[in-house]
Write a protein that binds this DNA or RNA. Structure first.
Length: 502
RNA sequence: GCCCCCGUAGCUCAGUUGGCAGAGCAGGCGACUUUUAAUCGCGAGGCCGAAGGUUCGAAUCCUUCCGGGGGUACCA
């Protein structure tokens, strides 16, 4: 019995038809099922607070009248009394509607209320026999009529595709989903407070870039009609933020979306939220101290503890975090000794001998990175700074004094994945140009995972950037850690999905 | 890109070696003035993701496609 209500858009099924009939009945009586505003004097949590102040046992808040509003999420019809659970932004509150306490036809009209509707209720806070905080209703009003039934009330919405495609249904039916995204929001606020309190200035730099820069990744390409030029969506915030240090800002940060046109996995999403910080007169040691304090204090503020559970392992984010060098960790975890395999050819042969699937086009840096991913990364469960990377892997970081093979760089790892990345930033423009040239040469040899030369950035750098410590952190991954979610898609409200084809 | 798994009522899920399509929740009708996954009674609800094929007979077996998940490759 499918009739089209809105041709070309929906097909009305029986359940929807019943709801539309109720809506039309309301309109026939002159009741607007979508009134322009509602008055609310108390949230669900505030009513609960009032009732908690009552003495033990059943009772009422004498002389107190409240107005609450929310979505109808459960309903228990008892004959001449009906219980309705309302959900608002603060939580649930039970409403008790009794026939002899309501005006005129209001009790009979309860049949016009369906699960999923928003209603407002005026009444007296009370505690029931079973101890449940409740609003004893004197009147109710329809605030918004819902035309579709909500998901199953006990199990919620379980289908993974629907949870992502229709996140609002997931949010309205799953408490855990609301918790995850509340924590996400609070964590980002806490990061801002932490950095603001340290004198960092939050800035916004362009998302549309002339060319990809600041990282090695395939970009999304778009077209700028007014200029008739192609642009790429940024893959990194780095080079613009450094320009601001050159301009004289001493501490800046940006929290924003990066876009990398690459694969998706439990820890990769094509658009992801990155936070980068740059601090003048700091180096990677200063940054490491800040990072461990920042992450642990955010956890403490948002969760009340520095201990989190991720993939069945308890992780303590409290400082100090372990520090180990790239070369030492490689030896410790049974990888190739990079002091022995010092050039591309020997390292390549060694990795092949060890059975790693490596590309003959890769440079030394990429090979070292491959070995790191194999031997080190999965082993770093508790928070760890991996220090001092091969120079070939890090064209934007400053050389480590006394060792021309290494740069002052760390990545921090938790639960076997990378959380952040920091450099003592390279500020020698001639050295920077030479490093870019090496990258270009690598690209010419077939390694396409290299950074592009950015002439405008080099011009800026030639004007002088103070000694600087820079840091980047994947916010989505931080939220995964804080919420215990093992898939990045669970911490992104609207992850990308394929179009549904007819 | 490749491999594996999944898709059944609005939602959550059963469905045996191929033999008439099932339950709970939601929704409808009825009973019930302190329930809270309310309870009880009666009815209703389906193109079994789509299209082909095998078969007397397909939700079930085969092929292709669509969508999702997991792995892997690629990728900071």
């Amino acid at each position: 019995m499918a009739a089209s209500v809105f041709p070309g858009r929906w097909t009305m099924d029986e359940l929807m038809a019943q709801r539309v009939a109720k809506l039309e009945l309301l309109r026939e009586r002159g009741v607007d099922p979508y009134p322009p505003r509602a008055t609310r004097t108390h949230t669900a949590a505030e009513v609960t607070g009032l009732v908690d102040a009552l003495p033990e046992g059943p009772g009422e808040c004498e002389g107190v009248r409240v107005q609450v509003a929310g979505r109808v999420v459960a309903r228990r019809d008892m004959g001449k009394a009906t219980f309705i659970d309302l959900l608002d932004g603060s939580g649930r509150i039970q409403v008790l509607l009794r026939q002899n306490q309501l005006q005129a036809n209001q009790y009979d009209d309860l049949k016009l209320i369906d699960l999923g509707d928003f209603i407002g209720v005026t009444g007296q806070p009370m505690r029931t026999r079973t101890g449940q905080p409740t609003v004893g209703a004197a009147a109710w009003t329809m605030l918004t009529k819902a035309l579709h039934a909500p998901p199953e009330k006990y199990h919620g919405l379980a289908d993974g595709e629907m949870r992502q495609r229709h996140r609002y249904l997931d949010l309205m039916s799953n408490e855990e989903t609301r918790r995850v995204f509340t924590i996400r929001s609070k964590a980002i606020s806490a990061l801002r407070r932490f950095l603001d309190a340290r004198g960092f200035l939050e800035v916004e730099t362009p998302i549309l870039h002339d060319s990809e820069s600041g990282a090695a990744a395939r970009p999304f390409i778009t077209h700028f009609e007014a200029l008739d030029e192609d642009r790429v969506l940024r893959i990194s915030l780095e080079l613009h933020l450094k320009r601001l240090l050159i301009g004289g800002f001493e501490r800046v940060y940006e929290i924003g979306r990066n876009f990398r046109n690459e694969g998706m996995s439990f820890k990769h999403n094509p658009e992801f939220t990155m936070m980068e910080t740059y601090e003048a007169y700091a180096d990677y040691n200063t940054v490491a101290a800040m990072v461990e304090e920042m992450v642990s204090s955010v956890a403490l503020e948002v969760l009340g503890t520095t201990k989190v559970v991720f993939r069945d392992q308890e992780i303590d984010l409290a400082p100090p975090w372990r520090r180990v060098t790239f070369f030492d960790a490689m030896r410790q975890y049974g990888g190739p000794d990079l002091d022995v395999f010092r050039d591309r050819e020997s390292l390549y042969k060694e990795l092949v001998r060890r059975g790693l699937d490596v590309s003959p086009a890769s440079g030394y840096g990429k090979l070292a990175d491959d070995a790191m991913s194999e031997y080190i990364e999965p082993r770093l469960i508790q928070p760890t700074f991996l220090l001092d990377y091969p120079v070939e892997l890090s064209p934007l970081a400053k050389l480590k004094p006394g060792n021309p093979r290494l740069v002052e760089r760390f990545e921090c790892f938790v639960s076997g994945f990378e959380l952040g990345n920091a450099y003592t930033e390279l500020n020698d423009p001639q050295e920077q140009r030479a490093r870019f040239d090496v990258q270009v040469a690598l690209r010419d040899e077939g390694d396409d995972e290299v950074e592009l030369l950015d002439e405008d950035f080099l011009f800026a750098l030639e004007h002088g950037m103070p000694p600087t410590g820079g840091f980047g952190m994947g916010i989505d991954r931080l939220v995964m850690l804080l919420t215990g979610q093992s898939s990045i898609r669970e911490v992104i409200l609207f992850p990308p999905l394929k179009r549904v084809k007819e």
